[in-house]
């Protein structure tokens, strides 16, 4: 990581913390950098920037670095950090907000797999109202080779009847699609 002048960063980029506050209702200024969130984070070993540092970088306005990090995409949304934060900061909610901000800013070059999974998942529930796993797996395989990496699981999953061949389509499948679209519209208007 390059050298960062902290006082300068804070003056120039104070508005990122406000943007995050607006997206999440969480004020990162409450964080006093005890590091407890990172200490208990089960995914910290696989992150490029540990959770407490992400929070610090938000305080300092380091928007691009944070939105382009792998951390926000490998966060497993387990909320252990939130359960343990002595300042009530809710890092898990911040991770959610940062993922959404990265999507809005188009800064997801670093997260192709994760974005593909989320997109295919939302497509599936928009289409059927419920998840149609078999189709999701096949479509994901075209994008990321998912099933080829799990050839040992595919056959037993079928023989053990763990996958339905056909989707269940709801009467209200259309409603789910409308919710997704209407939410995107409303959030777009208010951005």
């Amino acid at each position: 990581m390059s050298v960062v002048n902290l006082s300068e960063q804070k003056l120039v980029n104070g508005q990122f913390a406000d943007e995050v506050l607006k997206h999440t209702g969480v004020n990162v200024r409450d964080c006093y950098q005890c590091g407890k969130c990172s200490a208990g984070c089960p995914i910290a070993f696989a992150m490029d920037i540990r959770p407490n540092r992400v929070i610090r970088m938000v305080q300092l306005g380091m928007k691009d670095e944070v939105l382009e990090s792998r951390t926000i995409w490998v966060c497993a949304t387990c909320s252990t950090c939130t359960a343990r934060c002595p300042r009530g900061v809710d890092p898990a909610r911040i991770m959610d907000g940062l993922r959404i901000m990265a999507l809005e800013a188009g800064k997801t070059a670093n997260a192709e797999n994760e974005v593909a999974v989320h997109k295919l998942f939302m497509d599936s529930i928009g289409k059927y109202g419920r998840l149609y796993e078999l189709e999701l797996f096949l479509r994901l395989t075209l994008k990321t080779g998912f099933l080829f990496k799990n050839t040992d699981l595919a056959l037993p999953m079928l023989t053990k009847g763990k996958l339905s061949f056909l989707p269940t389509k709801l009467k209200g499948a259309n409603e789910v699609k409308k919710i997704i679209e209407a939410a995107a519209r409303l959030e777009g208007e208010q951005a």
Partner: peptide
Amino acid sequence: PDWNCCGASSAHSTSHLAGVAIPAR
């Protein structure tokens, strides 16, 4: 009757409002 998917981690990771509204139905 006619329950829908809760959106799992994908809905709330991509839109806060959809992340609440999908399970809310």
